[in-house]
């Protein structure tokens, strides 16, 4: 009996290790390629050898531009990615918290209407209205700007919904006590509700940062100037340039891919418990 349970434990671990390898091996291959000279990759493909070309590849990836304008260097794309990720997360949280506060804590005549107007946006992803959205941004003269990149992405109610759920779970006594003490709506929000929501804000920030950083279709349409490319937006062009060259620049392209992966993965791994909590609670 003991033997059987031991056997099944070994089997469990074997399955988990295979699963982990399934997720991990592709990334290890990309990492290995970043250390190799391009000629070596072309000749032998990925291997188990760790080369010494990482510094060179990194320098090329970060400082040399791959496009025509000379503006889409790795450094520049990295900057744009951070602007998009952080701008999107902050915008979404600030706007969502304000709206959720208004809906939950005020006696509004049209609260139900506002609620439905806002929450209908949860039903339709940006992808299904992508062309008219593009035209509107164009008409507003916001192509190739950070506003044009970020603001239309904020037009959905995920964060608002999340904070509404959370505010509703805050005990009623809190606002009663605050009112007895003479706190006005702004004071209550800033001094009580916001500090109370810290963990929620952190969880939302992680999820939204990753979501914003990883945006692809919208940036592809909105940014045509290479100076505005994000890393994720630039990846297709990187692939094309890489394969179009006489000697494909595998090292450099893979470095850029790794740089596009690291910040969101770092955030997700190091703030794992917040992230998991936020993810599993926001979608329920």
């Amino acid at each position: 009996m003991l033997k059987r349970s031991k056997l099944s434990a070994i089997l469990d671990h074997a399955i988990l290790i295979l699963g982990a390898l399934f997720m991990l091996v592709p990334l290890l291959m990309v990492l290995q390629i970043t250390t190799m000279p391009d000629v070596e990759v072309i000749k032998h493909g990925p291997s188990f050898q760790i080369g010494d070309q990482f510094d060179d590849n990194l320098k090329k990836a970060m400082l040399e531009a791959s496009g025509f304008s000379g503006e889409n260097t790795g450094v520049n794309m990295l900057k744009n990615s951070f602007v998009l990720g952080i701008g999107f997360a902050v915008g979404k949280i600030v706007i969502g918290m304000m709206a959720a506060y208004a809906i939950v804590y005020f006696r509004l005549k049209f609260a139900t209407l506002a609620f439905w107007v806002i929450f209908t946006t949860l039903l339709l992803p940006l992808e299904v209205r992508i062309l008219p959205s593009y035209e509107i941004v164009q008409r507003l003269g916001m192509l190739n700007t950070y506003q044009g990149l970020i603001v239309p992405l904020i037009a959905s109610a995920t964060a608002t919904f999340f904070f509404r759920q959370f505010f509703r779970s805050v005990p009623e006594e809190l606002i009663e006590a605050a009112r007895i003490d003479g706190a006005g709506p702004i004071k209550f929000f800033v001094d009580i509700l916001v500090p109370l929501s810290q963990t929620m804000i952190a969880a939302m920030f992680i999820i939204m940062f990753v979501y914003g950083w990883n945006q692809y279709l919208w940036p592809t349409m909105i940014t045509t100037e290479e100076g505005m490319f994000t890393l994720v937006r630039g990846i297709k062009q990187i692939t094309q340039v890489m394969e179009g060259n006489r000697i494909p620049e595998y090292g450099r392209a893979n470095v850029l891919a790794i740089i596009a992966i690291i910040p969101p993965v770092f955030v997700v791994i190091f703030f794992q418990s917040w992230f998991v909590k936020g993810l599993t609670e926001s979608d329920k």
Partner: peptide
């Protein structure tokens, strides 16, 4: 909505404004 909600009128409208205008336009 909370039972003991605030009754100010202008503030909630102000708070909802950014979200609503973005949603309507985009």
């Amino acid at each position: 909505m909370k039972r003991a909600g605030f009754t100010t009128h202008w503030l909630p409208i102000l708070l909802l404004m950014p979200q609503l205008s973005i949603i309507i336009v985009f």
